[in-house]
Simulated scan of single mutants.
Amino acid sequence: MTDLAMPAHKSVAFVRTTPAPRVPRPPLPGGPLHWVRTNLFPTPFNGLLTLLVVLLFVWTVPPLVRFLFIDAVWMGASRDACLPSVANPDPGACWAFVRTWFSFFIYGPYPMAERWRVDVFFALLAFGTAWLLWLDAPRRGLGAAFFFLVLPVVSFVLLSGFPAIGLPTVDTASWGGLLVTLVVASVGIVVSLPAGILLALGRRSTMPAVRLFSIGFIELVRGVPLITVLFMASVMLPLFVPPAWSPDKLLRALVGIAIFASAYMAEVVRAGLQSIPKGQYEAANALGLGYWRMLGLVVLPQALRVTIPNIVNNTIALFKDTTLVFFVGIFDFLRTIEIARVDPNWATPVTSTTGYAFAAIFYFVACHFMSRYATGIERRLAAGDRR
């Protein structure tokens, strides 16, 4: 032990008495190469899938871009401009056809002198939608009242006409194009959510009559395709009202769309209601809240928040399903393209392809913006759950 003893004139310190020199932190892995390795090639299987997707992209996108834009024909007065010629042996999309028929795609056979009324309707619809969907907008309560109460009445008077105030009557048979598509989609979307909530609550009700009616309605409507509902609404709805009150074809289609969408929305809302823990109901009862206040303040906000993806999915599906109304004789957006493409002045395969491509681009852009808005809402509502 004597040999291991430390000399008395020396000291051993295990704690640093001077600050350590500053050194920069080691660089974190980053850069484009690291992102590619982490996200695209983390495993051999994922790398193989990435290569397959890239090959599919290279195989499909350049020819599509070439057809739609590079080799496309933008100007012309007839189909001759879109046919192969010496100057253009392999023409692409015939956008001259879309330019010529564009107003017909928007308004349909709506009278030319009265189309300003459709433009005003589009402006009011855009204003009401923006006011309602902008979460930080001032007086959103007034925005909801405008969208659900004022806008339907004003739109009906504006589009149908009211001779007492100088607006000539325009029969719904003269409506068409994008106008009909937006009218049908708006009515279906606006009606389906509140009706679906009531049906979902009725299906969970303790009153046998209400529960059986809700279950029968939902299962019956969900058991048949939309085209069947539209045909039934067009044929059978006039049988339940006096002949003097018999609705026109567009109103029958609106009723069929609303019925169909409400049944599917009811199941979406019911799924959200079932996800709410029983403790939420017990806590609301302990606070002395009545049934409707409990639903409005505690249960439904949480249930609808959970089912936002499903609600948006139903909304997008309904927006695309509006194209089926042309089977019951209504000139929607897709139907106007069908009519235009058989015009003798433009009847060529390339004009048909271009018309369908134009419709596809329109529906894709509209559905994409719906999806992105819903994603933003989900991200905002989930901000309070982050740990």
Rank of each mutant, 00 (worst) to 15 (best):
P163S: 06
P194Q: 12
D136P: 01
W116Y: 14
S160C: 09
L124T: 01
A113W: 07
G176R: 04
G128C: 15
P163A: 06
L193S: 11
T100D: 07
T100R: 08
R139N: 14
F156K: 08
V184S: 00
F146N: 07
P208T: 04
T100Y: 08
V221K: 03
P152Y: 09
A195F: 14
V170L: 12
S155F: 05
A123V: 14
V118T: 00
A130Q: 08
L198W: 07
R139I: 12
A164K: 08
G223I: 09
W131E: 10
S103H: 08
Y110V: 07
I215C: 02
L201N: 02
I218A: 07
I165Y: 01
V210Q: 08
L230Y: 02
L182R: 01
I189L: 15
L198A: 10
G143M: 13
V183D: 13
A195C: 15
S214H: 08
R117C: 02
L178H: 13
R117V: 01
V229A: 07
R117S: 01
P111M: 06
R99D: 11
R139Y: 15
A233L: 00
V191N: 13
F162Q: 11
V183N: 12
P225S: 00
F97Y: 13
D136V: 00
G108Q: 03
M236L: 15
V157A: 11
M236T: 10
E114T: 02
M112W: 07
F105R: 05
G216M: 03
R139L: 15
G202K: 05
P225A: 01
L142F: 13
G202A: 13
G202C: 05
R140D: 09
D119Q: 12
P111S: 06
I189F: 09
G128T: 14
R204N: 03
V118N: 00
I215P: 00
V229G: 06
M112N: 08
V98C: 00
V120K: 06
F122K: 06
P138R: 01
F146V: 13
D119R: 12
F213E: 04
R115C: 07
G202Y: 05
V224D: 10
F217P: 03
I189V: 15
E219R: 12
L198G: 04
R204S: 06
I227D: 04
I215F: 04
S155M: 06
P163D: 06
V229Y: 05
L220W: 10
A130M: 15
A145N: 07
A195K: 09
G216D: 03
F231A: 14
S205C: 01
P152A: 08
P109K: 03
V191K: 12
E219D: 15
L220Q: 09
A137Q: 13
I106A: 08
A130R: 11
I215T: 07
D136F: 00
V150Q: 04
G216P: 02
S103L: 12
V190E: 14
T100I: 03
A209C: 00
T100W: 02
S214Y: 10
L201V: 05
L149N: 09
E114W: 02
T206G: 12
T228Y: 12
V98S: 01
A130V: 15
L182Y: 02
I215H: 06
E219W: 09
L212E: 10
F146G: 09
F122T: 04
R99N: 10
V190M: 15
V118L: 00
W175H: 13
A144N: 10
G176H: 04
S214E: 10
T206N: 10
S186L: 04
V224I: 15
